[in-house]
Simulated scan of single mutants.
Amino acid sequence: MRIRATVAAVSGALALSALVVPAAQAADSASSYRAEAAKVLHAAHSASGKSAFSTADDGPYAMDVTFSDFKIAAAVKVGTTNHVSTTVTYTMTHGADVDITADDFVTGPYIYRGSFDTPDNMLFGDLPATCTETSASTATCTGKIDVYPSEGELLNSDAGTWKGGALAIAYNGQDPSSDSFDVTKVGYADQGDLGSTLVQRYSKLTVNASPEPVKKGKTITVTGKLSRANWEDNQYHGYTKQPVKLQFRKKGTSTYTTLKTITSDSTGYLKTTTTASVDGYFRYSFAGTSTTPAVNATGDFVDVQ
């Protein structure tokens, strides 16, 4: 299974444990990309004297590659079980001695939580990015960040702001799976703080207005629940003590109007009352937080007689 990144002092935002892949993918190209990249990056960090994972004396050489114009979605909304993938684009600039068209040259984006030198967690793509040369020294690249919440990649405390980074490796004919693999002949580049995104715990919101039908002027009771993904037990639990708006849309119109704001209780439960006036739809609306995205419940129609 996937293993959450270990909190360790590493030079750059990459740790060996962050590149482990699910057992179900052990034979595919994602496994190869991650495992081989992990071996090189691990060696690079060890050679820097900051890695807690190895005692290797030498690492890959520093490659003349930098990254810029890193673009990612403003938020990545992650539930409890489904694989989530988000696209990243960036520009890669390289020296004349770097052949980015080589079959064994790879580059890819990643995002990390915490500081660049000592990240709390990292998320990568299953496959390397694909790049198109735009000049003799630059290329535009497109890759993905792949998230598997059910594989233990995230803790609830990981919700919030993550920073973006990118890496590049030139294997130069070296085979990482071989006993004769010489990492000192491999080129390596890694750069962080290229951008940012919110990794959020997916939210759900329900509503039920009753009785229905109801006589005009009578009381309508509106209940519901605000919940969000728990990445540690892969269930949805109530999001407590959050402001939620009760809104109404008159039948035949398209705009909701806020009637009042209430607060979810200790279980995420919502309950309030209002007076029946005309036919229409009631819903709850949550504006969201940095850790949890905004969500609107599907309107519940009430027939007023």
Score class of each variant (00 low, 15 high):
Met1Ile: 00
Ile3Pro: 06
Arg4Trp: 02
Ala5Val: 11
Thr6Ile: 03
Gly12Tyr: 01
Gly12Pro: 02
Leu14Trp: 04
Leu14Asn: 09
Ser17Gly: 03
Leu19Lys: 08
Leu19Arg: 02
Val21Asp: 03
Ala27Arg: 04
Ser29Ile: 08
Ala30Val: 03
Tyr33His: 06
Arg34Cys: 05
Arg34Glu: 09
Ala35Arg: 06
Ala38Trp: 08
Lys39Pro: 07
His42Asp: 11
Ala43Thr: 04
His45Arg: 03
Gly49Thr: 04
Lys50Thr: 12
Val65Met: 02
Thr66Pro: 10
Ser68Gln: 09
Asp69Glu: 12
Phe70Asp: 12
Gly79Tyr: 11
Asn82Thr: 08
Thr86Glu: 05
Tyr90Trp: 05
Ala96Gln: 13
Val98Ile: 14
Val98Phe: 09
Ile100Asn: 13
Thr101Gly: 08
Asp104Cys: 03
Gly108Asn: 05
Ile111Phe: 01
Tyr112Gly: 06
Ser115Ala: 06
Thr118Arg: 07
Leu123Lys: 13
Phe124Ala: 01
Leu127Gly: 08
Thr130Tyr: 02
Thr130Asp: 07
Glu133Ala: 15
Ala139Ile: 01
Gly143Pro: 04
Gly143Met: 12
Ile145Asp: 03
Val147Glu: 02
Tyr148Ala: 09
Ser150Ile: 11
Asn156Met: 02
Asn156Arg: 00
Gly160Pro: 06
Thr161Phe: 09
Trp162Val: 08
Leu167Pro: 11
Ile169Arg: 04
Ile169Glu: 13
Tyr171Val: 15
Gly173Cys: 12
Asp175Pro: 06
Thr184Pro: 00
Val186Leu: 03
Val186Ala: 00
Val186Trp: 04
Gly187Ser: 14
Tyr188Ser: 15
Leu194Gln: 04
Ser196Leu: 00
Arg201Pro: 03
Tyr202Ala: 09
Thr206Met: 13
Val207Gln: 15
Ala209Gly: 03
Ser210Asn: 13
Lys216His: 06
Lys218Ile: 00
Thr221Arg: 14
Thr223Ser: 08
Gly224Arg: 05
Leu226Ile: 11
Leu226Glu: 14
Trp231Thr: 10
Gln235Arg: 07
Gln235His: 13
His237Pro: 10
Lys241Ile: 06
Gln242Cys: 09
Gly252Cys: 01
Ser254Thr: 15
Thr255Ala: 15
Thr272Ser: 00
Thr273Gln: 14
Thr275Pro: 05
Ser277Cys: 14
Tyr284Ala: 14
Phe286Thr: 09
Thr292Ala: 12
Asn296Trp: 10
Asn296Ile: 14
Thr298Tyr: 15
Gly299Cys: 04
Asp300Arg: 15
Asp300Lys: 15
Asp303Leu: 10
